[in-house]
Simulated scan of single mutants.
Amino acid sequence: MKLCYLENILPLKRSRLFTDENGEIVRVMTEKSPAHCILKINSFSMFQAVNGTEFSVGGYTWVLSVSLSKGNKKEKGDHLSVYVTLVDKLAPGSFVDVVLRFFVYDHLRDAYLSVLDVREKRYHALRDKWGVPKFLPISTFKKKDYGFLVDDCCVFGAEVLVINNQQVKISTMSIVGENCDKYTWRIESFQSLSDRLCSPEICFNGWSWKLDLRPKGDSSVKGEYVSLFLHLENSSKLTHGNKLFVKYILRVKNQRQGQDCQELVHQWFSASAKSWGFKSFISLKVLNDPWKGYLVNNTIVIQLHIQKMILLRDVESDVN
């Protein structure tokens, strides 16, 4: 629907919404007042252009301006133009992306005509001003039926949605290990072990691990279960919110040709979540049963199989 001139399709009802032929300018009547800036102009006919006072949004300072734009021979008359100017001076290479919304007050209906430009505008050192050059035809603005100009007084407004791309967090995911070699940990004299035992360091593709065994169980299951965890030793590599997804199997081998006791784990490791596993991995009653085959000659065999490691990292961070 073409919307160069509004006399026939101005959305005078709040429920009606219109876009331009490209779907980039959206016009709708709303009772909602502008959230960031309101500019009231008395004796409008005396001015060709009016600048409002400064207002702040998103850590930046802005100014709303309204001006009269003369039409050329190909256009049908003059227009009101509205702009928002960035007051702050940006350094070369810096920018601010925004979405702009402009308003004009309808005194007759006690509502605002809202004009939203859905296209993002980029402010930078060479471009500090954006707006809608053909906000309203002057002929429409001055018509008494619309209520925009009453007793030579009018009200404009603006909202600025700051979308600063310089603050966008960009992350990547990459596989850093697949089907790593199985690590087997053989522990003798199991029944005489103390409360905790850690395996030697295990290295896979630059990541260091240890198995953390609690032979008598973690405090909450002490005396009932064996607890088993996988601990990431070099978690200091996971700074700035980086995380490591690990798919792995923890296994207590059956030494009599029976079925192993094992658990498949999918977990994210991070600087604050360095260990994952099970407080109740296998019951001590089952483990100590000589017919089950898990504890033979007071020896237990634990196995770790890391099947996949995926690193989630910030583009700007440095994880080797």
Rank of each mutant, 00 (worst) to 15 (best):
T172V: 15
E120C: 07
K129V: 15
Y146P: 00
G131P: 03
V118L: 11
L68C: 13
A49V: 04
G93M: 06
P137E: 06
G147A: 01
K76F: 05
I138M: 15
C154P: 06
K129R: 15
S114P: 01
F44K: 04
W62E: 00
L100I: 07
S171E: 14
W130P: 05
D128M: 11
K73F: 07
L149G: 05
P133A: 13
S67Q: 00
Q167L: 15
L64C: 07
S174G: 06
C180T: 12
M46Y: 02
I41G: 02
V104E: 03
K129L: 13
F102P: 06
M173S: 10
T61V: 06
E54H: 05
K129T: 15
L116A: 00
V99H: 09
F103H: 05
Y112P: 02
T61F: 03
H107S: 07
L80Y: 08
G77M: 01
L116Y: 03
L161S: 12
Q166D: 15
L149P: 07
Q167K: 15
C154M: 04
S65D: 05
M46L: 15
V87N: 00
L80A: 09
I175Q: 13
S56V: 13
S139F: 02
D88I: 02
F55L: 09
L108Q: 14
S69V: 09
L64D: 00
A125M: 11
D128H: 15
E120W: 08
N179T: 06
T85F: 12
G52I: 04
D181M: 07
L108K: 15
F103A: 02
E178S: 15
A125I: 13
D151K: 14
S114T: 01
F55E: 08
H124L: 02
Q48H: 14
R101A: 09
I138G: 04
V84D: 01
S81C: 11
A125Y: 12
G59M: 04
V115K: 11
L68V: 11
F148Q: 12
D152L: 05
V57C: 07
K74S: 13
V176L: 12
S81G: 12
E120Y: 05
E120A: 10
D145C: 13
N51I: 07
H36G: 03
A91Q: 11
Y123N: 11
L64V: 00
G157L: 02
A158L: 03
N42A: 14
